[in-house]
Design a protein around this nucleic acid. Sequence first.
RNA 1: GCCGAGGUGGCGGAACUGGCAGACGCACGGGACUUAAAAUCCCGAGACUCGCAAGGGUCGUGAGGGUUCGAUUCCCUCCCUCGGCACCA
Length: 822
Amino acid sequence: MADYTFREIEHKWQGIWDTNKSFAADASSAKKKYYCLVMFPYPSGNLHMGHVRNYSIGDVFARFHRMRGYEVIHPIGWDSFGLPAENAAIKNNIHPEVWTKENIHHMGLQLRALGISYDWDRELATCDPQYYRWNQWFFLKMWEKGLVFRKKAKVNWCPSCQTVLANEQVNQGLCWRCDSAVLDRELVQWFIKITAYAEELLSGHEKLQGQWPEQVLLMQKNWIGKSVGAEVDFSMVSADGVVLSTVRVFTTRPDTLFGATFMVVAPEHDIIAAVNDTITNSSAVATYAEQSKRKTTIERTANKEKTGLQLRGVFAINPVNGNRIPVFTADYVLTGYGTGAIMAVPAHDQRDWEFAKKYSLPIVEVIHSSGNDISRQAYEGEGVMVNSGQFDGTPSENGVSVVTAWLESKQLGKKAVNYRLKEWLVSRQRYWGTPIPMIHCPVCGVVPVTEKDLPIILPKDVQFTGAGQSPLATSEAFNAVNCPQCGISARRETDTMDTFVDSSWYYARYCDAKNASRPFDSAAANHWLAVDQYVGGIEHACMHLIYARFWHKCMRDLGLVTTDEPFSRLLTQGMVTLGGSAMSKSKGNVVAPDAIIEQYGADTARLFILFAAPPQKQLDWSDDGVEGAWRFLNRVWRLRELVQGPFAPAKEPLVAHDAPILSLRKRMNRTIAVVTSDIMREQQLNTAISRIMELVNELYAYPCHGHDNGVSREAYETVLKLLSPFVPHVTEEIWSALGHREHLGMSAWPVADEKYLHDDTIELPVQVNGKLRGKVSISADASADAVRDIAVNDEKLKIYFSGKKIVKFIYVPGKIVTIVVQ
RNA sequence: GCCGAGGUGGCGGAACUGGCAGACGCACGGGACUUAAAAUCCCGAGACUCGCAAGGGUCGUGAGGGUUCGAUUCCCUCCCUCGGCACCA
C-alpha cells in the first residue's frame, strides 16, 4: 500500500488556509478570546529545529483552543533589528535592510511550509518605520515622565560588538552575543528607569505563581534582588576630631551595628574627593582608584583576594557607640549598589572578616551563638546580641527592627530597601536599530524631537566603520537638524536603541498591527490582552521577560492598557541542542528542518519533535525516530481503509455481549479525557501523542471493523480530532475524504462521556507483606470487607496465608490491596 | 561560594496526591506475507536466576541510611550532571 502523499496534501491545505484566511482573528467574534504567542524570531536566514519545536508547540495550543470554541489570535512577526544584520552588511557589503528583508521572506515561506496557523495579516517587522516610530514615541513619553534619562556612568563595553551592553546582557563578565570579555567604560549613555518598577516587578509574581515556571520567577526574583535593611549615617572626622562630612551606609544587619570596626567605601565614592585635602595619602588613594577602574569585570570578580587602602587622616564615628573607626577604600565594595559605602562588621560578615584579617583590624563579636568561633571565620547566622550596650540580650531576629527603630528615633538612620536591579542602559553605538529621537542643541542642551516629526528614519547614507561610534554619525543629512526649541543648528543623537525595546511591546502591536496614528488602539489591545499562553526560551527570563513586564506597566500607566501583566501563562521550552550545545550559526552546528520536511513532510517533522520529549526539556537532536513518527502517520492514514464502508450508528445502549465495542468506547473516551488534560493542564504534548498512539493501536486490534457498528469509525474520527492540532494537514485530508464538509480544524474538540470513564469491575493488585503476589477481580464499588473476602479466599493467593496470621488488611479503593501476615 | 532543577532499560522518555516501575516510541530479536527484499501485520524483550515446559524466585529508578503495610515519589547524608547569580553589604 502506498505511503500517503504528504507533498500534495500539505500544499493543498496550506493553500486553502491561506485563501480562506482560516486563522484570521476576529475581534468582533462573540466567542471567548484566546491569545497564543510564541516569541518572535530573529530573521537570521533559516529556520532551525529549535524554531520548529517552538512554533509547533504554539500551534498545538492555538489549534486546540480554536477547536475548544475560542476565538484565537495567533500572530507572527520579526524581531528584525540587531547586530547580525549589521555584521553581515559589513562582511558582504550588502545593506542590512536588504539582508533582513530577504531573510524574512525566506523564513516566512519556511513557516508557511510548516502549516502553523498564523493570522498573517498581523505580521510585523520591528525594522519597519511604521513599527519603530512607536519605539520613538514611547521613548518621548517616558522622557516626559522622567523614566528616560542620560547620565555618565560606568557601563559595560563589548570591544568586539563595539557597543555598550545592558547588565542583563552580560553573563559572567562576557557579552551575551559574542562571549568577549566585557570592559568597564565611563560613558554618557541613555537609561530607562526600570528600577521605578522594581517593587511591582517583584510583587507582580504573585499573580504569575503557578502560571509561570517556578524557575523563571526565581531567576527574576534573584535578578531584582530585593534586600531590606537600614541606612545609617556615619560622621566623617579628621584626626583632630573636626566633622568633615557624613557618609551613609546600607546594611541588612543593623543588629550588628555595634560590631562595625571599620568602614569601606568604593573607589569611586564621592567622599574620597571630598576629604582629599585632609587625607595624608591622597596620591596613593588616587592610584588605587585608578587601578580598580582599569580592571575588567572578570578581573575584579575572579580574584576574591581582597585589596584595599586606608584613607589616612580621617575616621568615621560609629553612631551607636561613638567609636572612632578607620576608613578604607576597597574594590570589593561596589559603587552601583546601596550607597557605595559599608560599615564593616568582620565578626559577622565573611568578606569583612577576610579584609580585617588581612589588615589586622579588630573583630568584635556582637551576635553570640554557642558553638561558633569568630577567630576562625565570620558567624553570619542568628544569635543573641552582645557587646551592644542597651541591646544586650536581644535575639538578633528582633535586633534588626529594634535597632532600626532606635536609629530612626535618634535620626541617625532609617529603614531602607535596596535592589540589585540596575537601570536599563538602552543606547547602542550601532546602526541597525531604532534611532533615539533626541537632539543635542549647543544652547538648550538635550531636546526631544517633536512628536509630529516621527518617525526619525534610519539614514541610508552611512558608513559601516565598525569603529566604536554609531554609523549614524557618518550621515550628513541625518545630522543636519535645527533645535526644535530655539531653531539654531544642532545635531541629532546618533545612538540607536537596544533591540530589547522592540520586543518589549510587540505583543500589544499585534492587536492592531496596522494602526498608523497610534502604537495600537487601546480597545483592541484590551480586547486581546493579556497573552493567554506565551511560549519562549528560558534564556529570556532576566532579559526580555523582565523588560516586557516593565514596559507593559509603563503602557498601563500611560493609559494604553488596563492589565498589569502582559503574559498570563508562560511555557519555557527547552533548547534543541546538538551534541549537548546550543545550535548556533557561528558554531556551525545548526540542523535545518528542510531535509526532514522534504523527505517526510511537515506533519512528520512536527509530530516527531513534539513526541521526542516534554516541551520544557532540553532536547539533544537526533533524527532516530523520525521514521517512527512517519510510520505512525501512515498507520493512521491506512486506518481509513479499515473503517471504510457503510456504517450503522453505534448501538445505544451497549450491552454486555458487545465487549469489544464497549472496550473501544472506553478507550476512546479515556483517551479524550487524558489528551485534553495533557494539552491543557499538564502541557505534556509528548504523552498526549502517546495516548493517541494507544488508541490507534487499539483500533488496529479491534475485531469488528466493517460490519454491524460505527464504533470504529467513531473512534477513528476521534483520533483525527485529537491529532489535528499536532498534524493538521493529514488529518484534515482524511477528514474531508470521510465526507465531512466542515474543516476538521474548525470542528468541535471531542468531550469525554463520563459514563465510559469508570469500570464496573477492576483488576486489583494484591500485595502480601509489601510484595506483589497476585490480582483479584472485584466490582468497583465493593466494600473493604467484600474485597477482603475475595482476596483471602483467592486460590492463587492462599499459599501466602496458609499457616499465617493476617495482622493487617489495607484496601486503597480502586488502587491496591495490601495484606500483612505473620 | 549561594540558589534552583535533575539522575529511571541499549536510547528518547512514562508513572495521578505514597499504591502494579519501565506506558508510548526508537533500536533490537522472532514469526507471518513475499521467489527474495523493502514495506506491512503479529509476537517478544529491565537484569540475574530456577524450570523440559507451564510457571516461579531474587535484585532493580545515582550511592548509603530512615519513615511506612508499601518509596522513583517523603526525610537525612553523600556523589554526579545541568542551569541561574556571583565580593550585592
